[in-house]
């Protein structure tokens, strides 16, 4: 299996605060890496550095064998796409869904102008939405539907890596489940390589192949999903896992029989 993305010794400072402290990480082709950590641990900063939205003080980001520098070309930007937590603020409210999807397709010259409409419909179908959505505006959709549109837009340019930064945290639990199901389907259909960020360990368990844990700007553990959830190698991971509220099991309550 080849490495899709490799980052080496990334360091980022915000004034005197060290947000990332020499973080090195690899993501294999066609796998999903789940990134967990508490607020302020540097998860989102890491995502933004990889997407090229923040330039690091030190370290490098390698996409395949290509080094991504401070100034990225349009082609390099295209290859890494990002989905954000809040779908409301990532769309232009005055654009129809057709405009939103077409803009990315035309900007990166994915298809001819004459084929844009057909491609938009295909994209909506891939995220299980009706093509009648094309003529409507973002505010006409629910949060979950808007997140589907955001996913369609990110996938429209055929990125080599998809970064999802807490994509389900603003959604209701049942909607969250349907979005996770969609991600899992897309993963197998399109062979996605993903960096999936969440503070919710249940979400990470549902989507990831591997898990990385961050704390105060450092990477404390990288492990396979099975290992991490049953036999975490650091005390901090264990602490995180045991803090998740559990449903009362039947064993505990069945004692009265």
């Amino acid at each position: 299996m080849s490495t899709a993305l490799r980052i080496e010794d990334l360091t980022v400072h915000y004034d005197h605060f060290t947000a990332l402290d020499k973080v090195s990480l690899e993501i294999q082709q066609h796998t999903t890496l789940g990134l967990v950590g508490e607020s302020g641990s540097g998860k989102s900063t890491l995502a933004r550095v990889i997407a090229g939205l923040i330039s690091p003080v030190q370290g490098q980001v390698l996409l395949g064998s290509q080094n991504l520098g401070k100034k990225r070309s349009r082609e390099q930007h295209k290859k890494i796409q990002m989905i954000f937590q809040n779908p409301d603020s990532s769309f232009n409210p005055k654009h129809t869904i057709r405009q939103i999807l077409a803009e990315a397709l035309l900007f990166h010259q994915i298809v001819d102008r004459s084929h844009v409409d057909r491609r938009c419909k295909e994209l909506l179908a891939s995220v299980r939405m009706d093509e009648s959505a094309l003529g409507r505006y973002p505010h006409e959709f629910s949060g979950g539907q808007r997140q589907r549109i955001a996913i369609a837009r990110a996938l429209s340019v055929e990125p080599s890596i998809l970064i999802a930064d807490e994509p389900t945290s603003a959604l209701d639990v049942s909607v969250q489940l349907s979005i996770l199901e969609l991600f899992n389907k897309l993963k197998s259909e399109l062979n996605l390589t993903m960096l999936f960020i969440s503070h919710d360990l249940g979400v990470i368990h549902a989507i990831s192949d591997n898990v990385a844990v961050m704390r105060q700007g450092r990477l404390v553990e990288v492990n396979t999903k099975e290992q991490f959830f049953t036999r975490p190698s650091t005390a901090y991971s264990r602490e995180l896992l045991s803090a998740v509220p559990k449903m009362p099991t039947s064993q505990l309550s069945g004692g009265f029989l």
Partner: peptide
């Protein structure tokens, strides 16, 4: 609602 609680495997040694 119950179904949408995401399950986690049992932590060994807990």
């Amino acid at each position: 609602l119950i179904d949408s609680v995401l399950p986690l495997p049992e932590l060994e040694g807990s």
